[in-house]
Design a protein around this nucleic acid. Structure first.
Lengths: 202, 202
DNA sequence: CGGTAGCTTGACCGATCGGTCAGGGACTGC
DNA sequence: GCAGTCCCTGACCGATCGGTCAAGCTACCG
């Protein structure tokens, strides 16, 4: 490792490349990202990228795999306490924390999960999302419930990656405010009707 | 195919190509779509695509431009009746109709509007979405309101393009049920708190 | 000091990218 | 019959794609 100061140069380069790659995958999409662009943006050569990661798909796996692991852990816990509205609220808290800690990865596999079928890590993500949907929606899943879940998932993934909401002058929303707002919105969308939902136009 | 039966062959081929291209742009993304794939999928040659549309960007413009026109018309009307909750509800009705009639185009410019900056038609879409945000959120826009709008927009765009919600066995939700569900969800998200919103966990 | 392992790189590969261009076949008007 | 227009296409262009390979460099170990 040339001119290594702290940890191994391998780990440092890998981390930098993973991070830059994730940013590209989330913003311009996996298919539209080139190894050359990622390498340039990270300050390495394309060959270096392919030294640390066997292929473009392997780089994707390294970039979003850990986030999917975390999601699977979350789902494992979810199986235990089911159904009770209070515990669902607690799950939403944890879920929002997960979203905030994995913004780019979530946006990547939520919005590209359909088109990247066949890539193992994406398949894993799709299975996890499917399990999440089954756990959140009732098993008999009315159309309304599926729409609520889809809007919650897609909406959260969207807002997490779209920093300032198309407003060029935006002041970059503070994370804790986003967190509380997101918990509130997802609670409204996913919690079984808490007595006072304004039932207009159903 | 030069054997023209009904309308002009130009118009028919253009329509087919626009449709196929829009499907590709919405699903795999503009940058990851190739003219060759679009041509193959439509049953034409790549040269034919570039005969009908001067460039890949021109094809994008043709594919989503009309939808953006419709959105701009919708916004023009929105300026007139502002603020009153009842009229906002009526606007949501019309907006959902617009979403359902322009599923793929909406998904395309909502989810790729950030990464495709510089393309004129995308710039136009971003301006329209920005205007929509300013009209829906209050001008002073709390973080919670911006999150609500973002979740509503991103969530709607997501669910419109993601046909069966990751569930391989899904029975393809009927459009009218999706419509009513979407109106209900967007009303909850965007209508100023209608007296009885369950204010949990704020 | 020589050897070796780890990290980086440029040169190179075949395939594909968006785009240009010169035609070819089918139809119309003369 | 012939010119012209319209629609479509294959051949071709330079650039870039993901990926391979061998060489070079630094650091450490004997």
């Amino acid at each position: 490792m040339p001119t290594d100061t702290t940890a191994s140069a391998r780990a440092r380069a890998s981390d930098e490349l993973r991070e830059v790659a994730l940013e590209h995958f989330a913003t311009v999409g996996f298919g539209a990202s080139s190894l050359q662009q990622i390498a340039d943006h990270a300050g390495y050569s394309k060959s270096s990228v392919l030294y640390h990661f066997a292929s473009k798909e392997a780089l994707l796996e390294a970039a979003i795999g850990p986030s999917i692991d975390a999601l699977e852990d979350l789902l494992g816990d979810l199986i235990e306490f089911r159904r009770s509205p209070g515990e669902r609220g607690a799950f939403i808290d944890r879920f929002v924390d997960f979203l905030l800690a994995n913004r780019l990865a979530v946006h990547t596999f939520v919005n590209q999960g359909q088109s990247l079928r066949g890539i193992p890590v994406i398949e894993r993500a799709n299975v996890a999302i499917n399990r999440l949907a089954e756990a959140v929606c009732a098993d008999e899943a009315t159309a309304a419930e599926q729409v609520r879940f889809g809007v919650a998932l897609g909406g959260a993934a969207f807002i997490l990656a779209t920093g300032n909401l198309y407003r060029g002058d935006a002041p970059e929303l503070p994370e804790d405010e986003v967190r509380t707002a997101l918990v509130a919105v997802l609670s409204e969308l996913l919690l079984p009707v808490p007595a006072g939902r304004p039932d207009r136009a159903y």
